[in-house]
Design a protein around this nucleic acid. Structure first.
Lengths: 214, 214
DNA sequence: GCTCTTTCGCTACGGGTCGTAGCGTAACTG
DNA sequence: CAGTTACGCTACGACCCGTAGCGAAAGAGC
């Protein structure tokens, strides 16, 4: 099943994705056109359509590449890990190309099932892994209780289910808060905010208010 | 400065906004066209352009009207109030017209300052008021500490500043988590999730895990 | 009543984008 | 070298945008 004929240029792929990000920065999602991207990449418009079916998928791939950078170094404590991942995620979201593209693609995905699946694989699942990892570390450190259901051992299916629900919740809270702060409220995520948020996540509202009052 | 001449029809306004919502449900943001909306509303396309400068502002107004419904009845405790507002907000976001439109408009607002201002006034500030109200109630009940800075009385400017920062944080966490859960993760917000989230917000991660394990 | 003013429906238009088709050429495989 | 695929280029119909110009409709003010 080895492909014959002229192979696709990998450089062209990269040039197109790079051009797409540049166009996002300058024009935003709404005014970005396929012809413009092609011109920036020094490529024929037809070449774009041979690789991506439409604007949505092209932009998704262009932005998804940036999410590869996300990491979760062990910072020693749950609080520090949360602060770290918040700052990292915020840096990614504060770039103009991600800002405008991410929301637009998600909006389109409400009417495009294939796009929804691609978003999940390329972005959501990748982030969620970090949450699961950080949560495991905290449990190993004894900062969070293990997943124990009322009946049955720690490895019962009920425990796994509760753990999954809980990881999903944490993920939505962290990613959601950062996204909302940056994109909807339009405010920066600085270290002071990250500290306050992390205190809220770990210790609840009273803890957050104590940090806010300094 | 009383206007003379034929006045604009208020019914036409409502018909257009209603038609816009219907088009959003069927077509989504990307495929919605001004001509289509005009046809649905039984109105000439030029009439749309006499009232809204572009698609963004029209859709924003069509969706913003739905946010008027948001209320915060006193449910007796902080936990119950949070659960209530989460469920209410989720109901709003799970409608197909809000789902597709809200994210798209926010995406556009990253390159349109006027739109950003309108979003803030029509949607964000309206929601934030609920947060401030719920927070005050909880403080009156003694469920949350008052806003006291390390030095100075409870009415000092420092205390107000801390309170504002804190309210902004709470707002981003609540709204962000619900939006992310529904739009990005693509999962429903049922009462079980609302309970778990509220426990997290009020009591922190350990409390949430206790609820998850039931 | 009557006149003035603004709205509204309709048609038409230039400008732009979309996504595709067709062709000749370039690049790589066996 | 022959076969196969990628690529650039041009052209195209279809669609949408936002505007202009017209005549008719609907109130406001006298």
């Amino acid at each position: 099943m080895t492909r014959t004929g002229r192979p696709r240029s990998a450089e062209t792929d990269l040039a197109i994705l790079e051009a797409t990000r540049a166009a996002l920065v300058e024009l935003g999602w709404g005014k970005l056109t396929m012809g413009d991207v092609a011109a920036r990449a020094g490529v024929a418009k037809t070449t774009l359509y041979r690789r991506w079916a439409n604007k949505n998928e092209l932009v998704l791939d262009a932005v998804a590449a940036l999410f590869d950078e996300l990491q979760l170094p062990d910072r020693g404590s749950l609080l520090a890990d949360v602060e770290g991942v918040v700052m990292e995620f915020a840096e990614l979201l504060e770039r103009p190309e991600t800002k405008t593209a991410l929301m637009a693609v998600i909006a389109e995905s409400t009417h495009d099932e294939a796009l929804r699946v691609r978003i999940r694989e390329a972005i959501v699942d990748r982030q969620k892994r970090l949450v699961v990892l950080g949560r495991q570390r905290a449990q190993a450190r004894g900062e969070l209780p293990p997943d124990v259901p009322p009946d049955g051992g720690p490895d019962s299916p009920l425990a796994e289910q509760a753990a999954a629900r809980n990881a999903d919740l944490i993920f939505d809270v962290i990613a959601g808060a950062v996204v909302h702060r940056i994109l909807v409220s339009g405010e920066r995520v600085d270290f002071a905010w990250a500290r306050m948020f992390s205190a809220l996540l770990v210790g609840g509202l009273p803890a957050a208010m104590a940090v806010a009052a300094r």
